[in-house]
Structure formats: structure tokens, C-alpha cells
Amino acid sequence: MRNVFVAVLFTLFFSFTANAADRAMQDPAAKSTVEIHTKGFIKAWDERKVSIAHQAIPALGWPPMTMSFLLPLSPSFAALPVGTLVDFSFLPNDGGYRLIAIAAARQ
């Protein structure tokens, strides 16, 4: 009986630990606040946002994907044409991600 009790406690403990880790991976606020640098291709650019198809980002556990980033209200980034290979950086911000730098990549 005692062995069953110990086994149940271990199971509950490890289940809670795994669930906490899963929640941290899904919660942008739980992500690192370290600036992320990566490369991608411009898919769309308008006055409010830019969509970038980026490579995998191992630091965040992300596969390659396309994401949209809101642009700052003041025009601080020059628009780049669709298809341009870019180096860019972003930070987690209020449940999303804030683009902090973008430039055409040197090839």
C-alpha cells in the first residue's frame, strides 16, 4: 500500500512539472526577454505591419513559419519589397512580439 502511495505522489509531481513546462512554452510572457535575431523573407509590408517568413528559432523552440509584426506608429523602418531577404530582431511584448530592427541581409 505504501509503495502505491509513493508511486501516485511521484506521478502527480512529474505530471505537474510537465504541465508547467508546457504552459511556459505556450505563454509568450514566460519566454525570454532577450532580443531574438534571425533571418527571413518579406512576405508583405504595409503601413501597419510586416509579415516575414523566418527560419527556425531554436531559442524559442519555433519551427520555420510566417509571422506578422506590428510596425511602430512613427515611421522608423523603411519599407522593403516583398521577397527581400532580411536580418531582423524582435522582443516579446504584451502577449505578442515587437520588431526592433530590420534590414536587407547581405548575401
Rank of each mutant, 00 (worst) to 15 (best):
residue 22 D to L: 14
residue 90 F to V: 05
residue 59 A to S: 15
residue 33 T to S: 09
residue 45 W to V: 13
residue 103 A to T: 09
residue 54 H to M: 05
residue 15 S to G: 14
residue 35 E to T: 14
residue 36 I to T: 10
residue 58 P to A: 10
residue 30 A to N: 03
residue 80 L to A: 01
residue 42 I to D: 00
residue 60 L to I: 01
residue 22 D to F: 08
residue 47 E to C: 02
residue 77 F to D: 04
residue 43 K to I: 08
residue 83 G to N: 13
residue 6 V to D: 10
residue 50 V to N: 03
residue 51 S to D: 10
residue 51 S to P: 04
residue 82 V to A: 11
residue 50 V to I: 12
residue 75 P to K: 15
residue 73 L to T: 07
residue 85 L to F: 07
residue 17 T to W: 09
residue 35 E to M: 14
residue 67 M to V: 07
residue 31 K to C: 11
residue 56 A to I: 05
residue 93 N to L: 07
residue 54 H to Q: 09
residue 13 F to M: 12
residue 35 E to Q: 15
residue 103 A to K: 15
residue 85 L to C: 04
residue 85 L to I: 03
residue 33 T to Y: 06
residue 53 A to F: 05
residue 62 W to N: 07
residue 37 H to T: 11
residue 66 T to W: 00
residue 13 F to H: 06
residue 76 S to F: 09
residue 79 A to S: 10
residue 39 K to E: 09
residue 45 W to F: 12
residue 100 I to K: 08
residue 90 F to E: 12
residue 52 I to Q: 00
residue 106 R to E: 15
residue 61 G to S: 08
residue 70 L to M: 14
residue 2 R to V: 05
residue 99 L to A: 00
residue 37 H to K: 09
residue 105 A to F: 04
residue 34 V to P: 02
residue 87 D to F: 06
residue 44 A to F: 10
